[in-house]
Design a protein around this nucleic acid. Sequence first.
DNA 1: CTGAAAGCGCTTACAG
DNA 2: CTGAAAGCGCTTACAG
Lengths: 341, 341
Amino acid sequence: MTGIDDVARAAGVSAATVSRALSGRGRISDATRVRVRAAAAELGYVVSAAASALATGHAANIGVVVPLLDRWFFANVLDGIASRLAPRGYDMTLYSMSEDPSQRDGVLDVSLRRGRVDGLIVLSLTLADDEVDRLLALDLPVVGLSATSARLPALRVDELAVARAATEHLLRLGHRRIAHIGAGHDGEPGLDIPSLRRHGFQSTMADAGIPNAPFTPADFTIEGGHRAALALLDGAEPPTAIFAASDEIAFGALFAARDRGLDVPADLSVVGVDGHEMGDFFGLTTIAQFPHEQGERAADAVLAALEGRDELGDLAFRLVERSSTSRPRGGVAEVAGTSAP
Amino acid sequence: MTGIDDVARAAGVSAATVSRALSGRGRISDATRVRVRAAAAELGYVVSAAASALATGHAANIGVVVPLLDRWFFANVLDGIASRLAPRGYDMTLYSMSEDPSQRDGVLDVSLRRGRVDGLIVLSLTLADDEVDRLLALDLPVVGLSATSARLPALRVDELAVARAATEHLLRLGHRRIAHIGAGHDGEPGLDIPSLRRHGFQSTMADAGIPNAPFTPADFTIEGGHRAALALLDGAEPPTAIFAASDEIAFGALFAARDRGLDVPADLSVVGVDGHEMGDFFGLTTIAQFPHEQGERAADAVLAALEGRDELGDLAFRLVERSSTSRPRGGVAEVAGTSAP
DNA sequence: CTGAAAGCGCTTACAG
DNA sequence: CTGAAAGCGCTTACAG
């Protein structure tokens, strides 16, 4: 590989001058800069990442901690991040955190401590309290995306509001037997997204006078949604509507309805969360989020944090009504406060 | 950050000894090794990636060049790669190559030349000849996954065989009016995947006595497949079967059939390529590939290449028959060589 | 504006 | 088996 000395020789200057000409830092005459850059381009010279990082303490690299690389939502977020990082000269290194405790420890205690990255984007993982501590101890600018812990600086979607919007949409249509498919433990909400959505659902139902609204846990996959919905539909009191914690779960529910010969939305209304690209084809009503844009904003936010600026804030969502939701068969829409005379 | 000297001090040895104790290279007494490792663990010390890379020339990092981060197939490949790299202590840095020429140049001429990675995995991109040259000039172990150029060492699927399997499946069922939705230019096949699939389709059709079998170009998305299929179905001579170059295109075709009130498979048979997780729900017949496993093999192969070993080879595929294909309405299966008396 | 030199944090022959 | 020292390839005060 050609090094800085080769360029220096070719341009007839010192390595120091090459460094200045290429980085743009420090004073340098226009003529020299032009000459050096030409020589560098000619030789195809690019500054060594390792040497530069060692000398400056700046790696020009952002780490992205992801839970699962194979979900549509995260793939889109990643694409959004990449689209903003590259033009600014940053690379992106992925750290995938699985469920396996020793693997997680490896990421938190080893990989992330190698100093390979200048900042971190953490995608909505369910992080334990001590994991958040270890993340924070890295002493790196961190931007969570809808992240789990209140202690993590983050761009957030108001997940309670998301769940409320979905649930109220169904209630407004006149549904009462509404079930939720998602995740999250019983009891206090917990700050992870699945828990917040579940909690938002159940508290909205409770506010509408329906305590203990049914909940069925599922993986956030089509497969998981399919299985859970089948269980609900085959149960003693099948719901007339399902609020699925993700669009992929919702697709699974739609397939389950098809498998049981149910008409959507007449027999079963389904609403999801995400704004999945396939939603349109399925006619799925959903609370759309905008993962690509979320990724872009997260990238901008870490980069801003590197310069000491704060670009955190709220993330948008929007109810998109399509054909998977309607009044229940024979049901009457009860609009709050609109009691008929 | 705590450095090697802190550990040396804590363990009462020199930095050199710490380095040896931690890396396992060089001779060192067991007692010292244990003491040093304890001190390092105690201090939470991890070797600096930049310093280590600079000193050894080894970055412990693999670059993955991807076309689009938001396709199901690539997300799965990535997940497979990550699952094999992490346990071996390698990080993974992503380089997304878009269609934009200046962006591609940036990746090839700048990002990849920073020396940040020890090896490269290139996911099935359509690379121009000079781009392959520049990739090769990096002088890095490269493993292509179903890559484009014959000059790139790669794990390959026999794409002509894939297309033939799909097409012959349809022909065997008795279809004659079969259309292909995909990509690839006219004329000589070209070595990119879409072209190979298209070519495999058309030559198989030609062999069956059907020259100039219809082809409609599309993006490799549901949206693209939907549009293209609609165009075919609304055409003068709608096909009785569609061979889609990807499952996502196939899903689009399935939705198009639904939109036109056509029964699948009675009115329209559809076969895809990929083995998409949703295929089962759609009942999609497909030529399954195994992206996660492909990613694992690619990771193993670069790592092997780093050690001078060659683990390249062929990638598997398999026809998975589901309910989206059958004989055409009123059609008769013509099995080659079984002319009825 | 430009260069010589020290330093970034490790690793690894070279001695002992 | 262990340490002192040079070196990896840059960057950046410090002089001039």
